[in-house]
Simulated assay, not measured.
Amino acid sequence: MTTTTDEHDLSEPLEASDFAFTRRAWVDAPPARVYDLVSDVSAIGRWSPNATDVTFDEGAGPRAGAWFSGRNHKDGRRWTTRSQIVRADPGTAFTFVVGGAEDGIVRWSWTLRPQGRGTVVEQSWRLLRLDPVLGTTRGDLEALRDYMANSAENTLIALAQWIAEE
């Protein structure tokens, strides 16, 4: 997808796939327990510094195809997103796409791997398509990616701490 260029280098096209990251942390709980926590989207506000009021659509739950809504905030702005679960493998992986599987804008993934008595939790973020609402320059999108990477690190730290104190 080449639709926008950096304001400083008009010859360099932007590609959505250039904007992604993965962060990981070890938590003191088995993968099945961690999966139950991260797939309960209504609980994300316990750990995420940016998401609140997340709820599944009526009758939906943590399964592929299900939809949920949540409020987000950044830099004094607030908005609501709609997301669709695209992978729900208990004890292994949980993935959703903001905007839905067909026309999504961002993919968030959680993967879980047993290690010792606990779990290595990976949280990944990938921009799926360019959209002016996220930024129009390479700098905008790099800043967004870096902000979201920091948010993911804070989420993983808070999750690990919450599990340790539970």
Score class of each variant (00 low, 15 high):
E7T: 11
D9I: 12
E12S: 15
P13K: 09
P13E: 11
L14D: 10
L14N: 03
E15C: 14
E15I: 09
A16W: 07
A16E: 06
D18N: 15
F19S: 06
F21Q: 10
F21C: 10
A25E: 01
V27Q: 04
A29W: 04
P31H: 03
R33W: 02
V34M: 08
L37P: 12
V38I: 12
D40Y: 02
D40L: 04
A43F: 00
I44A: 08
I44H: 12
G45H: 07
G45R: 03
S48P: 13
S48Q: 05
A51Q: 12
T52C: 08
T52Q: 07
T55Q: 12
G61P: 12
P62V: 09
R63A: 14
A66H: 09
W67E: 11
S69W: 11
N72A: 08
N72H: 13
K74G: 10
R78F: 10
T80R: 10
T80N: 07
T81P: 06
Q84C: 08
R87A: 14
A88W: 08
P90R: 03
G91H: 02
A93E: 02
F94K: 07
V97G: 14
G99T: 08
G100K: 02
G100T: 04
A101S: 13
E102Y: 02
G104K: 03
V106F: 07
V106P: 00
W108T: 14
S109V: 04
S109M: 04
W110Y: 14
W110C: 12
T111D: 12
R113W: 01
R113T: 07
Q115N: 13
Q115W: 06
G118T: 05
V120W: 08
V120L: 14
Q123E: 09
S124K: 01
S124V: 01
W125T: 06
R126Y: 00
L127N: 08
L130W: 02
D131Y: 03
P132K: 05
P132C: 07
V133K: 13
L134W: 09
T137V: 01
R138E: 13
R138H: 13
E142Q: 14
R145Y: 03
Y147E: 09
A149K: 08
E153S: 04
E153F: 01
N154L: 13
N154C: 13
T155F: 09
L156R: 01
L156Y: 02
A158Q: 09
L159E: 01
A160G: 08
A160H: 01
E165N: 14
E165C: 12
E166D: 15
